[in-house]
Design a protein around this nucleic acid. Sequence first.
DNA 1: GTATATTTGTATGGATCGTTATAAAAATCA
DNA 2: TGATTTTTATAACGATCCATACAAATATAC
Lengths: 213, 213
Amino acid sequence: MARKKSETGPARRGRPPAYDTETALKRATETFWRTGYSGTSLDKVAAATGMSPPSLYAVFGNKHALYLEALARYWEISLAATREALAGDHPLDEALMLAYDAALSIYFSGKGSARGCFVVGTAVTEVAEDAAIRSSVATGLRAIDADFEARFRLAQDKGELDREADPAALAILAAATMQTIAIRARAGARRADLREIARKAVTVICGRQPEAR
Amino acid sequence: MARKKSETGPARRGRPPAYDTETALKRATETFWRTGYSGTSLDKVAAATGMSPPSLYAVFGNKHALYLEALARYWEISLAATREALAGDHPLDEALMLAYDAALSIYFSGKGSARGCFVVGTAVTEVAEDAAIRSSVATGLRAIDADFEARFRLAQDKGELDREADPAALAILAAATMQTIAIRARAGARRADLREIARKAVTVICGRQPEAR
DNA sequence: GTATATTTGTATGGATCGTTATAAAAATCA
DNA sequence: TGATTTTTATAACGATCCATACAAATATAC
């Protein structure tokens, strides 16, 4: 629960915070993103944020709570990116490519080699033993499926997609494509190659257009 | 490089090993599988294998080398399972389902909740900062793609698959389906639901059969 | 038996882990 | 100014990390 959202009230009482909570969370996220939850020590987070351990604990609680907040924020951002891509009035194949381009922008953000998806790259490992992380991941995965499925249903309504197509099945494949791209990005694949993968996947998923072109 | 493969020569000299290297590697793999590489201490591995830390180091080198050997062994087993499923003379859709059933058997093996895929569940996290693990993962991913692609090409030759289909694109989708199943299994999805996902994906991937049914 | 070779368990080293006690620093309120 | 409030940095806590020194244990070779 990030504070610092106070609307500059009548001036706070004690010593003012030296660091912004939002940017600290962003820096912490970047650190977890690269070395995972278990592989990231709080000292590393402290170094990345410039905050001392006691300040981190005062603001975020503990390492686990900090990671959960980073995970929740990541879901917000990445799900919003997918939704925005799918929400426009583009043709189905273009909308899907916009979603994959948005994902690629996230997966290849930051300095150095690609980090892929924060969830696939760090949360999935913890999910086996950590109920809180598992819950967050499961909920997010369902949301992705639902967003894709809604777009496929809309495509059917608009006549872009064969009436006999199965929107739920296509949604799983669309989500799977996003996830394989996330894995391959982290494993070192080139962005252009991954975009080509997305393009081919979209072609298969959209299938032959209904008669009216 | 696991020893203990010696063909019972003229009787070894010193005190005989108390533990079998193969079963120790299997137990170590199971431990990494659940808590990941960074999340698994050597003490935990020692407890799981029943071996003392010095014995583990004598046999496997160090924690990193032990994990790499577990990873290599996992690739061997899982790739062999996929190949065997695709190698039979079943129809394309049945062959694909055999591959997914084999994967599900691996993902749901062991006691307790499903661990998913060892690679997706543990190696992908380390891949960002560990060159050796990254190399192993990249090679394995290429192998999966190649195995699926070969099967799709065969299907075209046998007339099971539309001549205009793109075997490479379908292979990516088939691999992506396997990976999304791995992720969802670890995140708590039920086996029956994942099998249904596989079934629907196979339907989309195989597409409409060519004229001759 | 004695010497040699190899593995074993115990015990521990030095570093790092997550977390917190403590007190100085920097602001407002009186 | 002095009291109060809040954040800061330093330092350290016990626990655990990966790895190894050491000597007892157990086999063969002579």
